[in-house]
Computed example of a mutant assay.
Amino acid sequence: MSLGLHENRQRRRRRFWWAVTKWSLALIAIVAAGAYSYRIGSQLAARDVTKAEQRIVELTEEVGGLERQSAALASELAKSKESIAAWQARYEREVPTGFVRELMSLVQQKLDAGADQERLAFLVSTAQKPRTCDETPQTKRFIVTTSLQSGANDAVSFADRSITVTASGTAARDASGNIEAWFDPNQPVKIAFTELGGKSVTAEGALPLHRSIVVGDDEYRFTFLPGARGFLSVTADRCDYP
């Protein structure tokens, strides 16, 4: 009887220690798994922190670069505004407006029409001086030479014969298209001014035609208009020069 009890106690003891051993091994396994997981998690967290720190450094550098670029652009913008303001001020100073602009436009028209540059410059520089002119302009007429017309009465003189004026033009045509002897007043004419000594200048254009000639201290202002058939009428007004 005592032997059976002893064996039962031995079996219960072995089962107890086996249970303790199993739970101990299970606990050890759980602790080991937890420790391993903690270690892996710590490594991953450390890696993520490192990556985050690197990204922060990169972003900080990018922000710094953008700030420097923004400062450079702001500086360039300020310089551009200063340049624009300077050009605007220069434009307002140098580009004429109002009467001056109209006067420059008129001067350009005169230059395009063949006016003498030095003469225009002189007239502008002496514009404040009153002009003294004769009260009795001279008017004369002469024949305009053509391909079929030349000879007598084809010249007139002014300034005590110091200026001789002649003209040539295009021959007129009748209704049938035949050439006539006299010039066509609707076509441009060419005027020649010959001074004593042989110096000659010309003016060419449609009538009425205007031209000024300076001889010594006198300026002669000529105006040409169509006269009787074949003739040209010229009026000369003498003024002091300058």
Rank of each mutant, 00 (worst) to 15 (best):
residue 144 V to P: 02
residue 99 F to W: 00
residue 73 L to N: 07
residue 152 A to M: 06
residue 184 D to R: 09
residue 227 G to R: 07
residue 63 V to C: 01
residue 106 L to S: 14
residue 176 S to E: 14
residue 122 F to W: 09
residue 89 A to F: 03
residue 60 T to Y: 08
residue 74 A to E: 14
residue 125 S to C: 04
residue 158 F to V: 06
residue 227 G to L: 11
residue 54 Q to I: 07
residue 230 G to I: 08
residue 111 L to S: 05
residue 237 D to K: 13
residue 169 G to E: 01
residue 11 R to F: 09
residue 52 A to R: 13
residue 71 A to V: 12
residue 160 D to C: 03
residue 81 K to S: 09
residue 76 E to I: 09
residue 106 L to N: 15
residue 182 W to S: 13
residue 68 R to C: 00
residue 241 Y to A: 15
residue 171 A to N: 13
residue 4 G to N: 12
residue 209 L to R: 12
residue 94 E to L: 15
residue 128 Q to S: 14
residue 52 A to N: 12
residue 187 Q to F: 02
residue 150 S to L: 01
residue 166 T to I: 03
residue 108 Q to A: 15
residue 66 L to W: 05
residue 213 I to P: 05
residue 103 L to C: 03
residue 108 Q to P: 00
residue 134 D to F: 03
residue 78 A to H: 05
residue 88 Q to S: 14
residue 132 T to N: 08
residue 162 S to Y: 01
residue 221 R to C: 00
residue 167 A to W: 07
residue 150 S to E: 04
residue 39 R to M: 04
residue 169 G to Y: 07
residue 239 C to T: 11
residue 223 T to P: 00
residue 132 T to W: 00
residue 41 G to I: 12
residue 48 D to N: 15
residue 215 V to R: 09
residue 14 R to Y: 07
residue 197 G to A: 02
residue 106 L to A: 15
residue 113 A to V: 01
residue 29 A to I: 02
residue 12 R to Q: 10
residue 109 Q to T: 13
residue 51 K to T: 11
residue 83 S to C: 06
residue 87 W to E: 12
residue 169 G to F: 05
residue 173 R to A: 08
residue 55 R to S: 12
residue 116 D to G: 05
residue 4 G to V: 06
residue 147 S to H: 08
residue 121 A to Q: 12
